[in-house]
Design a binder for these strands. Sequence first.
DNA 1: AACGCAGTTGCGAATGAATTGCGATAAGGC
DNA 2: GCCTTATCGCAATTCATTCGCAACTGCGTT
Lengths: 151, 151
Amino acid sequence: MKGIDQRVTEFEHQLRKAGLRMTQQRRLILRVLAEADDHPDAKGIFTRAFVHDPTLSLSTVYRTMKLLETQGAIERHAFEDGVSRYEHADQAHHDHLIDIETGKVIEFSSPEIEELQAKIAAKLGYEIVRHKLELYGRKLGGKTRRRRPGA
Amino acid sequence: MKGIDQRVTEFEHQLRKAGLRMTQQRRLILRVLAEADDHPDAKGIFTRAFVHDPTLSLSTVYRTMKLLETQGAIERHAFEDGVSRYEHADQAHHDHLIDIETGKVIEFSSPEIEELQAKIAAKLGYEIVRHKLELYGRKLGGKTRRRRPGA
DNA sequence: AACGCAGTTGCGAATGAATTGCGATAAGGC
DNA sequence: GCCTTATCGCAATTCATTCGCAACTGCGTT
Ligand SMILES: [Mn+2]
Ligand SMILES: [Mn+2]
Ligand SMILES: [Zn+2]
Ligand SMILES: [Zn+2]
């Protein structure tokens, strides 16, 4: 892994610059996010953090996620399950493939697609500010359908 | 336009096949959807339909949208404004570009991107069942920034 | 090291979209 | 037309997320 404390400190500077404060709760949530390698929702983040601080409230998680989002420290996703899911933003841009049977989220990136998107937008007279590309699919070959023995 | 009544009749057959009924409300909502050239949400559909039948309820609109969706008659979108938006599904697949300043939704389609998506999914061992591609951008050149007169 | 004032938090209440239970109503097969 | 039952209108409910507010705490100042 690469410096969780470093990220926290980094974020603390961002906060200071905006007259905001680095609290125990924010530090904890930041740690949980840095340790996550998936895309947890607010409740999930709350659950993981609650273990380390049983006084933490879900409201604070929501408020912190909103803060982190406006500060550009995390990204919010709205996959088909209806709830908002988050991930820290200190990684290269990528899009997601969701396994519709297991819910597993796989990350990928395609410079070609990104380029085509920009080209399409330009042709329509627009510049892309952000975008969302989500593929929902099912595993290939997994359940290999073999011919019925009797046939 | 191309046969609104035809679409209604077509859908009526689908319903019959499933032991369901074609009601006045469904007929009306179907008509509203067929006449729409945008991506209205439930409340918007309700408002348009309410004009023709003041006894219609919003619940029925929601129930009907769900029904239409499971029957594959419409597509549901979840753009960034949080509410579900709908459009009839009897048109070729396309994706959307949303003007982040006006909210205007522009449709487009790119066979190249579609192909790349399939290729990426395949490489990851998946087949795509459905996908969501939304570009959020702002108009280019619109507000041409002219040099300040005094400068 | 104590002080003071915003910025923050926990908690419960409020929102708002979407769903649902239920008694009344109306499709549509016979 | 009659009867069964799918559907409707309405009110109540659900669920994620936001908010109001009093208590609390980070942190620059004295
Ligand atoms: Mn990701
Ligand atoms: Mn469309
Ligand atoms: Zn992308
Ligand atoms: Zn597409």
